[in-house]
Every structure is written in structure tokens, then in C-alpha cells.
Amino acid sequence: MMLIKVEQLSYLQVLHDLSMQVEEGDWVTIIGKSGSGKSTLLKLIAGLISPTSGHIYYQGQDITDLDPIKLRQSVSYCYQQPVLFGETVADNLNFPFKIRHQQPQHDQLVASLQSVQLPAEFLTKKITELSGGEKQRVAMIRNLLFHPKVVLLDEVTAGLDEESKQAVHQFLVKAHQNGTTFIQVTHEIDEIANAEQKLVLENGGLHHEELSR
């Protein structure tokens, strides 16, 4: 099933008549030079900014007709440089529950930490005491706690050490196996090499690149 369809999308001087389609269960990897508009494209798809012209469809519906809250809970954008809020890691993991008026289960939070190789004690850890890689992983599970259908990953493994990178990667692969659709922006050589579908963003438009190159 077609999940995301982008038609003739333009944004200021950054994107020009860009079109793309993403099927359910896809893992699309987008590469491109710094400043080519990769983050801009992902933010447009999540409805965090609005295009100058063109249309984005989610499950066949123009996203301007959808409730932005519902859209963002289904199409989740992970920031390139995420910030944590509140005091502790738990504050961050509780937030997705709070906005849905639900009570988090302690076990569920612990399990989510462990899914990215973080110990249970991290729940009470101060956010100021986390390393960059740990912050990135907490932000990642914060986005995925409620299993959004589409996850937009904006260079989420950039600058992480090998261990954190592996932890994040395994976590994403597992979510993918469970049916999550990914659109990923990356500069990492091995992520590009292993990409299922690769697109290059250049001069405001997307084009395919042969995987053999």
C-alpha cells in the first residue's frame, strides 16, 4: 500500500517540484550534500513546516486535511540534533504517554531502554549527565514508544560511537521487521552501502542512484 506520496513539492529556494512515493514497509535512504534540503523534506512530510507549493499525501489523504497531531503521531520526525527536556530520562519517556492521557508502565519504559542497550537505572538519570550517544538513543525511543507507522530519521547515527550506532541500528531493524516504514537521511558509508532503496537529493529534486555505483 502507498503510504506517503509527495507531488511537485517546492519549498522556498530549497526544493523544486520534488516527487516521491513510499510504500508501506519500505526503508528509503536519502543522501545528499549538506544544505541540499534533506531535513527540510522530512520536516515537510511530518507537517512541521508547510510547502510553498505542491502536495503531500499520507494514506491517500492530503496532509493539510489531516489533524496535525494525528499525523505527527503516525509520521514521526526524529530531529538531527535532538534535545531532551525536563529533568530526567523518565520525563522524556513519560511525555508521549502524557500527551495521550495514559499512564506509563514502569516495565514498558525499562524494556524500551533495554531495546537500545541502556540499563534500567537510566530512568532516573539526569538528562545533563548523559553522553551524546545516550541522548540520541533516549530521543529515538521517545519517538518510537507508540510505534508510529512511518519514522523519519534525520542523521540519527551521525557522530555516534560504534557501540551506540550498533544499538540504534539493531533497534531500527527490529522495528522495520515489525512493519515500521523508514525514510532515513544519512551520511554514514555503511548505512548507504546497505540501503534497500537509495535516493539522492540534488538541486532541489530527488533521483535514483544505481545501487551498483
Binding site: 512541521l48 497531531i69 494525528k70 505527527r72 503521531q73 514521526s76 526524529c78 530531529y79 527536556f85 521517545r142
Partner: peptide, 13 residues
């Protein structure tokens, strides 16, 4: 600002 953006992206009102 970034914190607010982050919360909006998570689907907060």
C-alpha cells in the same frame, strides 16, 4: 524553541 519543536514532532498539542 528546540524543546517545543521536539514536543510538537512527538504529536503534542
Amino acid at each position: 524553541r528546540q524543546q517545543v519543536l521536539e514536543k510538537l514532532a512527538l504529536g503534542a498539542n
